[in-house]
Design a protein around this nucleic acid. Structure first.
Lengths: 190, 190
DNA sequence: TTCCTGGGTGGCACTGAGTGTCAATACCGG
DNA sequence: CCGGTATTGACACTCAGTGCCACCCAGGAA
């Protein structure tokens, strides 16, 4: 009951914030403006989000968790790059369901230094976790150099696709971009 | 003349700051403490550094510029990954000249979220610039997917080496770690 | 109905980063 | 010794983020 209300306030705050941030830019928008538009106090904002960045970044966190879960769900006999591509494909489908919101989010993240930093940080973390999962599947010890590099290059391919997609304004087919980027990864034909 | 003095103050400020930050951590150290130890005013600090982060990050920026210059200086007929490995090797030699300072810098950067974000941001930028240089050498249009992925994976190999090296406290041979990491990059044998 | 208890909220004051402004000062050539 | 330029310090300000406390408003117990 009270839990429902919390979720509603949180989503409302997130929506209002994204709208303002997308229009005025990250640095150009103060928390004061966000909470005024949402009708809550400044103090309450910080009860829902650790920082201004977190309003935007939490979407990325959720998406990362989703991608990792998809990877875990892939059959164990798939080669690493195939499993990664399919896992990312599922995430891409999720993104494509809300193209306008995703583009706004991506644009804001990519052109705001502090957000881009947090995004890349999360990506590096994800690469580590994915490499660990790939190691588990392959039955080799964690922190395998090859697998860490594989996860990193796959995530870079994904990031490049997303970047170009958001530059195009979300018009092109993100799934196709992803496949193209994965096809450009060297050393997977043997 | 006055230019000399500026450089002296800047270096003194940088040294004092690094010492304090390494001991107390990034968040745990205030600008107040740094300027008190350096004997200048808070305002003056911000005349030399754009932000607290910049005291640390500027070293990374210089190193990145150096690596890029080394890459440009490599013979054009070297394959991309070889040219990158050699360029990084030169940077590694530079790092190995000041192991204690480099380890402090690396540790601080890697375990402070906001600094790690800036570092990764810089690394992504560098990957883009290096890919552009590789494209120029190869005579292909810029923004080549393969080359961007190559640059990104090479920088990841470098970053992984640096990470393990700093975890070891700088005891191991960073150059050897780098070669090992590059050897683990898939798809370079043909 | 009354009490009272707990989660959510707003107000307030505080720290710390970062910026603009201005007066003072130090240093240089003439 | 003097005038101009660059550096500095001091002060005031904005904004992010945090701690604290009083308040309010449900819902359960007497």
């Amino acid at each position: 009951m009270a839990e429902r209300k919390r979720q509603v306030v949180r989503e409302e705050l997130g929506e209002v914030a994204l709208k303002l941030l997308a229009v005025q830019g990250f640095e150009g928008t103060t928390i004061e403006q966000i909470v005024a538009a949402a009708g809550v106090s400044r103090r309450t904002f910080f009860r829902y989000f650790k920082s201004k960045e977190d309003v935007i970044i939490e979407f990325l966190g959720d998406l990362g968790d989703f991608m990792l879960a998809e990877l875990v769900a892939r059959p164990v006999d798939e080669p690493p790059l195939v499993a990664l591509r399919r896992a990312f494909g599922a995430a891409v489908d999720l993104i494509a369901e809300f193209p306008q919101k995703s583009v706004a989010l991506a644009r804001l993240t990519l052109c705001t230094p502090v957000l881009r930093g947090r995004y890349l940080d999360r990506q590096a973390d994800l690469a580590r976790e994915m490499a660990a999962e790939l190691a588990r599947r392959a039955g080799v010890p964690a922190r395998d150099l090859r697998l860490e590099l594989t996860a990193a290059v796959a995530l870079t391919a994904y990031a490049l696709s997303l970047e170009r997609w958001s530059e195009d304004g979300g018009d092109t087919d993100l799934g196709a971009l992803l496949n193209e980027a994965f096809a450009a990864i060297p050393g997977q034909d043997h």
